[in-house]
Simulated assay, not measured.
Amino acid sequence: MKESTIQANILKYLNSLPGCYAINNHGNSYQGSGRPDIFASYKGRFLAFEVKNESGKPTKLQLHELSKWEAAGAITGIVRSVDDVKKLIEGIE
């Protein structure tokens, strides 16, 4: 499955949740490289996800960017499906 399809499915799921707003982070030359693909807020928690397909691997820069968001209190992860996202956010009340 293409990463763009996985990302669209995740965004659809997140935006269907009450108390959640999620966007696709369209990278460009003004933002810098390595930024997560999806930014969201869910019930007051910030989420940052890097989307990969089954064979995709994050770059060192992507992992570094995720670690900075995590250090600031965000829920982060490399996600390959809606189920991966569900596991990461299941404890948010």
Rank of each mutant, 00 (worst) to 15 (best):
M1T: 15
M1Y: 11
M1K: 15
M1N: 15
E3G: 08
S4P: 04
S4F: 09
T5N: 11
I6G: 04
I6V: 15
Q7D: 06
Q7H: 08
A8Q: 12
A8I: 04
N9S: 12
I10L: 03
I10H: 01
L11Y: 03
L11C: 11
K12R: 10
K12P: 01
L14G: 01
N15R: 10
S16Y: 05
S16A: 14
S16L: 07
L17M: 10
P18Q: 11
P18V: 07
G19A: 11
G19L: 08
C20L: 09
Y21K: 13
A22W: 01
A22I: 13
N24R: 14
N24T: 08
N24C: 05
N25M: 14
H26N: 14
G27A: 14
G27I: 11
N28H: 08
S29C: 06
Y30A: 15
Y30M: 08
Y30V: 08
Q31R: 14
Q31K: 15
Q31A: 14
S33Q: 12
G34P: 04
R35M: 07
R35G: 07
D37T: 02
D37S: 04
D37G: 01
I38H: 02
I38G: 09
Y42K: 06
G44Y: 12
F46L: 15
L47Y: 05
L47T: 08
A48T: 09
A48E: 12
F49G: 04
E50K: 03
E50R: 02
V51Q: 00
K52M: 00
K52A: 02
K52W: 02
N53I: 00
E54I: 04
E54A: 15
K57E: 14
P58Y: 00
T59P: 11
K60N: 12
K60C: 04
K60M: 05
Q62K: 09
Q62H: 07
Q62T: 05
L63K: 01
H64K: 11
E65V: 08
L66A: 11
L66V: 07
L66C: 07
S67N: 09
K68E: 11
K68S: 06
K68I: 10
K68P: 01
W69E: 13
E70I: 06
E70N: 10
A71G: 15
A72R: 14
A72E: 14
G73D: 12
G73W: 09
I75M: 04
I75C: 03
I75S: 03
I75V: 15
I75H: 03
G77L: 01
I78Y: 00
I78F: 02
I78K: 00
V79D: 02
R80Y: 04
S81Y: 05
S81C: 12
S81L: 12
S81H: 05
V82E: 02
V82K: 00
D83S: 12
D84F: 06
D84E: 06
D84I: 08
V85I: 06
K86P: 02
K87S: 13
K87N: 08
K87Q: 13
K87D: 10
L88V: 00
L88A: 06
L88G: 06
E90S: 09
E90I: 05
G91P: 00
G91Y: 10
G91T: 13
I92C: 07
I92A: 07
I92V: 15
I92D: 07
I92W: 04
I92E: 07
